[in-house]
Amino acid sequence: MRDTSELSAAVERFADRLRAAPQSRLQRGAAAEGLALARELARRAQRIEEPGATERVMPDAGVFTVADQLVVAGNDLAEVLRTAPDGALEGDLGEAVDLVREATRRAGL
């Protein structure tokens, strides 16, 4: 099992920043960045857990729920990566952490 605490921490930091952001900032794009990231993390977890299955897209539930959606998707991916066999999915963890950092930067948070 691999240590996915860096991914979980990065997701939690971004989610906390989204929760603390004013509505105007969320509406100017921070929430959209968070939702896009949540959808990407969920897509990656689905791809690993159910290869070849029809992709399910996380719905847009509004700017005030994005942080929670991000945490759920991030935790799902972290768990999938944590329990993957050693040697499998080696680059996926680092890529996911990078995605979170890039989205946080783009969101201006």
Results as ranks from 00 to 15, higher is better:
102 E>D: 15
36 A>R: 14
105 R>N: 03
97 V>T: 13
15 A>P: 04
92 D>G: 06
53 A>V: 07
54 T>N: 05
17 R>M: 08
1 M>L: 09
72 V>C: 00
64 F>G: 07
71 V>L: 15
77 L>H: 02
94 G>R: 12
80 V>R: 13
54 T>H: 04
60 D>Y: 09
16 D>W: 04
20 A>M: 03
19 R>H: 03
65 T>G: 06
34 G>Q: 05
34 G>I: 07
105 R>D: 12
4 T>W: 06
28 R>P: 00
12 E>H: 09
86 D>V: 07
93 L>T: 07
42 A>V: 00
49 E>K: 13
80 V>N: 04
86 D>W: 02
37 L>I: 06
75 N>R: 14
53 A>W: 12
85 P>L: 06
64 F>H: 11
11 V>L: 07
77 L>I: 04
88 A>W: 09
12 E>M: 07
2 R>S: 11
68 D>W: 03
2 R>T: 13
90 E>H: 09
7 L>I: 06
85 P>Q: 09
83 T>D: 12
90 E>M: 04
94 G>Q: 10
55 E>W: 08
10 A>C: 06
43 R>L: 12
21 A>H: 05
96 A>I: 04
55 E>D: 06
95 E>L: 13
61 A>S: 13
108 G>I: 02
49 E>A: 15
11 V>C: 08
31 A>K: 01
83 T>I: 00
84 A>W: 05
58 M>F: 03
34 G>K: 09
14 F>W: 05
102 E>N: 13
72 V>M: 11
33 E>S: 01
39 R>C: 08
77 L>F: 09
84 A>I: 01
46 Q>M: 05
53 A>T: 10
101 R>Y: 00
40 E>F: 01
91 G>D: 14
30 A>P: 06
9 A>C: 02
46 Q>A: 02
80 V>H: 03
64 F>V: 10
22 P>H: 11
46 Q>I: 06
56 R>T: 13
57 V>G: 00
13 R>H: 10
50 E>C: 07
80 V>F: 07
90 E>I: 11
49 E>S: 15
15 A>L: 08
53 A>G: 01
48 I>N: 01
4 T>Q: 08
59 P>I: 04
42 A>P: 00
69 Q>N: 13
42 A>Q: 09
66 V>K: 10
106 R>P: 00
37 L>H: 07
67 A>Q: 05
65 T>K: 12
48 I>R: 14
26 L>S: 04
79 E>K: 11
105 R>K: 11
55 E>F: 07
52 G>F: 10
26 L>A: 08
35 L>R: 08
53 A>Y: 10
58 M>L: 15
92 D>L: 15
21 A>F: 08
84 A>E: 04
54 T>P: 03
94 G>E: 14
1 M>R: 10
29 G>K: 02
64 F>E: 14
4 T>S: 14
97 V>I: 15
23 Q>D: 10
81 L>C: 05
107 A>G: 13
57 V>N: 01
90 E>K: 11
16 D>G: 15
73 A>Q: 04
26 L>F: 04
97 V>D: 11
39 R>Q: 15
56 R>V: 15
60 D>W: 11
84 A>M: 02
12 E>F: 02
98 D>T: 14
102 E>M: 11
94 G>M: 11
87 G>C: 01
44 R>D: 07
